[in-house]
């Protein structure tokens, strides 16, 4: 086998995890080069956490293999442990310990020397903006602060690779911004960041994305590439009344390949831009008032929706 130029932080081959008869992760393969911010995007129950937990040595894969920092996740998990940081989806610091005590605990457990730990603690407190709250009980902090502290504790030992499982779930938008700034900081220091999310705006921040659905990898690439590749044709944003009638009419309209509801608007894919004028006439002829109709660049969400539809169609065909 050829070795790639860039060393790989994560290498997953045909990874499978079953819980009884249920397959949570179904033969997924991908690689993450060092230094990348790699996003793992998928709806609830897609298998994101399960994958991350296999990579961190919490779960044992049913089949397939995974390598993290060059070590096998099953046979060499002890060597992986000091090289990675992990922030679980569920908040997992000690709420009855103070901010400082949590940092000291995780630092100590990871064998950070006393001298180094003092320095790291200082740095984390500043980074997470927790210096003033250093003696507060962790349980008393607001969610945004807790998450930043959790990030700090996950990197107290300066890991090469950082696994973040929905780090911003349940956090207000401002705190999410701040959190992502921190992720960029960490990545800027050369740390590989493997992050799961179901927020599209967050996914846009990633260098590369893996989209996972029903345990299967349905797309892999940079956010831009995913948008370009999945949405073939021209994407239109249409505001029309009554919306239900518009939806039904558009599904029948000539040249239209896909219609989805997108907030109060409809996102419609047509084969070419030439179809646009006739589409407006088509709707007006059916007593539908069109207030807006314009081509837009597909968002990641459009790409995601399109991919999931494709996956569902394929699954349906597979069953027949």
């Amino acid at each position: 086998m050829m070795h790639t130029e860039v060393p790989l932080a994560v290498e997953v081959t045909d990874l499978v995890k079953r819980f009884g008869a249920f397959t949570a992760v179904d033969h997924i393969s991908f690689t993450v080069p060092k230094g990348e911010i790699f996003g793992f995007l998928g709806p609830n129950g897609a298998g994101k956490s399960t994958t991350i937990r296999m990579l961190c040595g919490i779960l044992v894969p049913t089949a397939g293999s995974g390598r993290v920092a060059g070590f096998d996740v099953v046979t060499e998990s002890e060597r992986i442990k000091t090289r990675i940081g992990y922030m679980s989806q569920k908040f997992s610091l000690y709420e009855d310990l103070t901010v400082e005590e949590n940092i000291e605990f995780y630092g100590g457990v990871y064998g950070v020397s006393r001298h180094k730990l003092a320095e790291r603690k200082q740095w984390i407190l500043e980074m997470a903006n927790l210096t003033e709250r250093r003696t507060s009980l962790t349980g008393e902090l607001a969610m945004g602060w807790k998450q930043r502290l959790a990030l700090g504790c996950a990197i107290v030992h300066e890991p090469e690779i950082l696994f973040l499982d929905e780090p911003t779930a349940g956090v207000d938008p401002i705190s999410r911004r701040t959190f992502w700034d921190l992720i960029y900081d960490v990545a800027g220091q050369g740390v590989t960041v493997f992050v799961t999310t179901h927020y599209m705006d967050e996914a846009e921040h990633c260098d590369r994305l893996a989209m996972i659905y029903n345990g299967q990898l349905i797309a892999l690439g940079s956010p831009q590439a995913l948008k370009d590749r999945t949405v073939s044709g021209v994407l239109l944003d249409i505001q029309a009344q009554p919306a239900m009638a518009a939806l039904e009419a558009l599904e029948e309209a000539p040249g239209v390949t896909d219609v989805t509801i997108f907030g109060s608007a409809l996102h419609v894919i047509v084969e070419t831009a030439d179809a646009i004028p006739s589409l407006r006439d088509y709707l007006t002829a059916r007593q539908i008032t069109v207030t807006a109709l314009e081509p837009i660049l597909p968002s990641l969400e459009d790409a995601f929706v399109a991919l999931i539809e494709q996956a569902d169609q394929q699954a349906a065909m597979g069953k027949e």
Binding site: C56, I84, Y86, S92, L93, V109
Partner: peptide
């Protein structure tokens, strides 16, 4: 119950 076990498992303890 509190989920702190995961942090311990991934640690070198």
């Amino acid at each position: 119950e509190r989920g702190t076990i995961e942090s311990l498992i991934v640690s070198p303890v």
